[in-house]
Design a protein around this nucleic acid. Structure first.
Lengths: 380, 380
DNA sequence: TTGAAAGCGGTACCAG
DNA sequence: CTGGTACCGCTTTCAA
């Protein structure tokens, strides 16, 4: 399969002076109320300057064959008149959409809402820096494939990000067929070598977290996982089981749950488990939100987190759920999704710039951070 | 100030058959792996059909002057060949970006992250239905104005949504100057008549919530509000104070707080207040997330929500924080942000379609829903 | 170093 | 009802 056709069509300018950048930078800082509302186009700008459109375009785009003086004149006039090239026209002419697509099927949205937005925010920063737009398409699950086809057919974006890969994933096959560059946030089992992705070490993070609890003497540890048809959740479960196995312990299915990571899920599950005959002394939870639910349950039972019951959670470092401070509330495995978003975007832009490049991946390490919610297993 | 120039340039086709819709609908449902990857353009399509580009274009766009038979032939061939017009080309030709912009300054993002995404999801649905794209720009606060200017100058979007209006808001002035249609999610004090907006009844919702608590015998009620330079928070506070005033009570500043609506904010504030000399018997909270924090604090103090301490929160109906069921955990004022997003989008598209229309607004009513977290004030 | 002109892929006017 | 053609605003080849 050959490279994305649009991206190799024309050679890039040799000299990538970021005139454009500094130009917009300059205008961005202009004071409010400058009072020009009808925007100007290239033709008009070049007439003002008594130059051809060609020359003006070249000057603004950093092509080397323009005299320094001309370039300066052009830049100043452009700035003064508040000129910026029409996006659509440029896109049509260059064949690049200068946009990245994010298709969000409803199910992912519902399940990972806040995490997803944090990722988006990170990616968005990177796009902005590189002059790319971010297009978000929210669709019903059944229309997801169609959304990708539309993006490809109408050339709406130069690439996309695959969110929330499942254990049985197929989107990457579609995208390859469509010749649409992509990066996976997470990993696709069996396609680790042939796709570009960025992921945290879910398995080892949960293994280490489990080890920590085992070291503290806990042997009945509950796992409140995300839905295990998702790759990340499957890996976390594996980490949990591996840690137990290493100590010669067999995972107790009664202590393992999986569901959308809501707050009530955490609370209800914890209540049930705590009321059972042989309750766990510790909880390993896949999301801060559910962990908060667990904490609520623990409180309701009159128990103290970190003393009577230990809780370890994964912390995606969401801004509205801070878990930092000298001693964080929750002991956690932490990995910034926002950072992942930035990196995923960088990777994708790189692939788009050089479509012939080999698949590349980035493995982020989650930190294991000890907070207030863990302590030695209570003597029985 | 006249109407947005791009939008009145050309008359709309008289007959708006949704051929286009059904066309893409058809292709969307195509089975995977059809194996066409090089996409076709109008010229090629018309050659296949032995028709002019003009006719094909008209047939596809639902213009009335095409014979039924021709239209059918065209539609079938287009579907078969997987044709869809290139977005950029169409945008350039029509002068419409067919996209809506959402500029998210970092501060809003941090503060209202999950709420914001839920709104976006709602709006996104509407956009998709109408063939619009959603462009999200994440920027540092200082660059927000620049981002809007870029959208206008480069014609990246046909309109934008203003998120999180402040008590002292200026964005709407900029947008009017830029001639960029917009809808406000929330209200801008002093511009209620001159801008289009959609908002919930923050003041009366919080007034009713306070009344409920007063009716239950609570007189020392704490308000854990959002940041009060935001319009919504200012209104909520007013509702709270009005309700007290009506009963001849004076708000106690010691019981009123404002901050980013995080979980720890709720917990820490509640702990402090509960430990004070004259603690409140009820909390009115601006967000589910903070309310969960309050519940945690209440639990930590060994108290039971709904019995020892009452909690009422505003519930934005976020999917990952369900508060429903027969008897919701939290008594709340509830208003779906997602619905607001849908409606805001509809309103904006309407304005774009008819730029001469008068400002319009939509006032959503929050419901007051009694859950488990409220009860009579404990006898002292 | 500069300019004229040919696209990019559509839409929309004006004839026929 | 259909077709020819002139744009939309920019980039880029080719010639000067």
């Amino acid at each position: 399969m050959s490279a994305h056709p649009d991206l190799v069509k024309r050679p890039a300018p040799k000299l990538m002076l970021s005139i454009q950048q500094s130009l917009s930078g300059g205008s961005l800082s202009k004071r409010f109320g400058q009072g020009m509302s009808k925007s100007i186009n290239l033709k008009e700008l070049s007439q003002q300057l008594n130059l051809s459109q060609t020359t003006v375009s070249r000057a603004l785009n950093g092509y080397p064959e323009v005299s320094a003086e001309t370039r300066k004149r052009v830049a100043e006039m452009a700035d003064k008149l508040g000129y910026a090239p029409n996006s659509q026209a440029r896109r049509l002419a260059t064949g690049r959409a200068m946009a990245i697509g994010h298709v969000i099927p409803r199910s992912i949205h519902e399940m990972m809402n806040p995490i997803f937005l944090e990722f988006i925010a990170g990616a968005g920063e990177t796009y902005s820096e590189h002059g790319y737009d971010m297009i978000i398409t929210v669709v019903e699950d059944a229309q997801e494939e169609g959304a990708y086809r539309e993006i490809a057919r109408r050339k709406k974006a130069d690439g996309v990000i695959i969110h929330g890969p499942a254990v049985k994933e197929t989107r990457h096959l579609l995208l390859k067929e469509l010749n649409l560059p992509f990066v996976v946030h997470g990993r696709i089992p069996g396609a680790e070598e042939t796709t570009s992705w960025i992921d945290m070490n879910n398995r080892s993070a949960f293994q280490r977290a489990t080890d920590l609890l085992l070291d503290l003497g806990h042997t009945r540890i509950a796992l409140l996982n995300g839905l295990e048809h998702m790759d990340f959740a499957a890996r976390r479960r594996r980490g949990f089981e591996d840690a137990l196995a290493t100590r010669g312990l067999t995972p107790d299915p009664a202590l393992m749950r999986r569901a959308d990571m809501t707050e009530p899920y955490g609370c209800d599950s914890a209540l049930e488990l705590l009321e059972s005959d042989n309750p766990p002394t510790a909880f390993l939870v896949s999301s801060m939100i559910s962990a908060i639910g667990v904490a609520r349950a623990v409180g309701q039972r009159g128990l103290r987190p970190g003393t009577d019951v230990s809780i370890v959670t994964h912390d995606d470092a969401l801004s509205f759920l801070p878990n930092s401070g000298a001693v964080p509330i929750f002991t956690c495995t932490r990995s910034s999704v926002r950072y992942a978003g930035q990196k995923a975007a960088e990777l994708l832009l790189k692939i788009i710039a050089d479509p012939s490049s080999k698949p590349e991946c980035l493995h982020l390490d989650a930190e294991l951070i000890v907070g207030q919610s863990t302590g030695p297993a209570p003597a029985r």
